[in-house]
Structures are given as structure tokens and as C-alpha cells.
Design a protein around this nucleic acid. Sequence first.
DNA 1: TTGCAAATGTTATGTTATTACATCAATTGC
DNA 2: GCAATTGATGTAATAACATAACATTTGCAA
Lengths: 132, 132
Amino acid sequence: MTTPQLTKNQSLVFDVLEKAEGPLSAYTILDKLRDHGFRAPLQVYRALEKLLEYGVVHRLESINSFVACAHPGDDCHSHGIVAFAICESCGQVMEFHDHEVDHRLMAWVRGQKFKPEKTTIEIRGLCEACAA
Amino acid sequence: MTTPQLTKNQSLVFDVLEKAEGPLSAYTILDKLRDHGFRAPLQVYRALEKLLEYGVVHRLESINSFVACAHPGDDCHSHGIVAFAICESCGQVMEFHDHEVDHRLMAWVRGQKFKPEKTTIEIRGLCEACAA
DNA sequence: TTGCAAATGTTATGTTATTACATCAATTGC
DNA sequence: GCAATTGATGTAATAACATAACATTTGCAA
Ligand SMILES: [Zn+2]
Ligand SMILES: [Zn+2]
Ligand SMILES: [Zn+2]
Ligand SMILES: [Zn+2]
């Protein structure tokens, strides 16, 4: 997926996510953009929809939040399934990829004749600093 | 985790999930139990909390729904990380386990000194029947 | 029987996401 | 130029998901 020029709202939302320490909820993004004229959730959700489509932002299903892709310049769609380790204490997120995991999961679904569209792998726990 | 005797509300919620074709949202469960005296979301959420703790029900993070464990008598906690294939057309869910996937993910987090608590693997797509 | 812990009931509220409709801006074809 | 189309935006209302706070009941054990 090639990323087209972002629109004004898309840029604003993306910038907020890039500068953030960790994942943000849509409503947190909204609050951060009130000064820039954002008034309604839909302004955020519509921008996020496109950013997700372009692959520059990921949605963390288990915490209803969004995070900028940790591999700028790379194409997350091309390096297979993306996995996340999410610290439940400080919110830090690590994004990684493992071809063997992809392969095993895809082999399993192929055996079931299941046609995968979108895969979520999220590990919640404590990062090194917070576990200490 | 050994499963204690279920309370009245826990039994009602569990029965609804067991008899269901696929995953149900908390509010869908609530509606199905109005005839049995359920009036408020908390009655469902509190029962679900215990059922999840006992490992007899799973939460599907990507669709905000709950499903009875597909391996009755087995202990999902003992056979490692649970994965789900969820049909976005008919709602059918397949639950499976893959030790190699567990192993790779746990090896990765160990390398980061990340302490995992709960892992989610959910593959959305189309089941064989719906993909045809 | 008294005290405690767990479960339940009830109301209100907080959080996340979408529907519906109007308006605006850029592009295209004539 | 100018209508027609398309994509983006603005706004209000509502739907869907989840929890806080507090009162009451139940089962059980000291
Ligand atoms: Zn990425
Ligand atoms: Zn941390
Ligand atoms: Zn299970
Ligand atoms: Zn299906």
C-alpha cells in the first residue's frame, strides 16, 4: 500500500500519534486536537480509518487504542502479521514480526479452508522497567 | 484452575453462551436473560468476569464478544495460548492452540525481558462455507 | 447469633463507535 | 466556464460497550 498525501485532518491525527509515548484512544486524540478545531469523534475516526488503510497506524484491539506504526518507511503489510507487546503499567508498546508465527497461523487456517483477512496478536503484560 | 460450582447468574450466562451458535456480546446475553430476571449489564459482566477467571469462557477482543470454551473438560490455561479464527460473515468461531506459536511469541518476549500476562490471537476472515 | 465475605440488585455514569444528513473542495468531462 | 462527480469535512444525535457507587441479600463459619 502506497501512502498518498495526507489530508489536513489525517495529518493532525497522525502527528498526535507519532508524538505520543504510547497508544491513544480516539477520544484522547480528539481532546488533543480541540485547539486545532476538532469538535466531534467522527473527525478522529474518519482520519484513523484512512491511516489504518494506509498502514501507517495500527489499532490495538485489546485496549481500544491506536498507535503509529513503529516501522516508518517499511510496509507492515509486506512483512506479514504484526504483533504487539503492550505494557499494562506504562502503556509502552513494542511492535514486532515473526515469520514463523505467521507461517504457523496461516498453515493452520489453510488446513481449515479459512480465508484470513486480518490477524490480531497482542501480548499484554509488563515491560522490563515496570516488571522490576 | 479448577472450576467451582457456578452461582445462579453464572450458570445462566454460561448456558446462554454454550447454546449459542457463536460469540455473543454482553448486551445480547442480557437480552436473552431478561425473562430470567436480568435487568442490568452488571449482572452479565460480573458473571462473565468469573467465567473468564475459571477459563470456561473466552473473550474475543476484536469483536467485543464472549464465547464458551470449545474444549470442555480441558484446561485452556494449561495448553498454552489460545487462538481463534472468527468468520466475519456467519460469526462461527474456531478455537485452536499451537505450541510452536506459543513458543515463538514467548521466546520473543523473553528476549525483551517483557513479562506476559495475557495474549490475544484472533484471525478474522471467512470460514470455508462463507468463502465459497 | 453474630460477623464476614461473596454474590446480587439498582441507578447512574463513563467510554467507545456509528448513523444520518448537510456542506465544502477538488477533479473531471463537456 | 460550468455542471457532475467524488472525496473530505462539519455537526448532531444515537448506539454499543463497560464500570462506579452504593444498598441489600445470601451462605457460611467463628
Ligand atoms: Zn507497523
Ligand atoms: Zn512498562
Ligand atoms: Zn478454550
Ligand atoms: Zn462463515
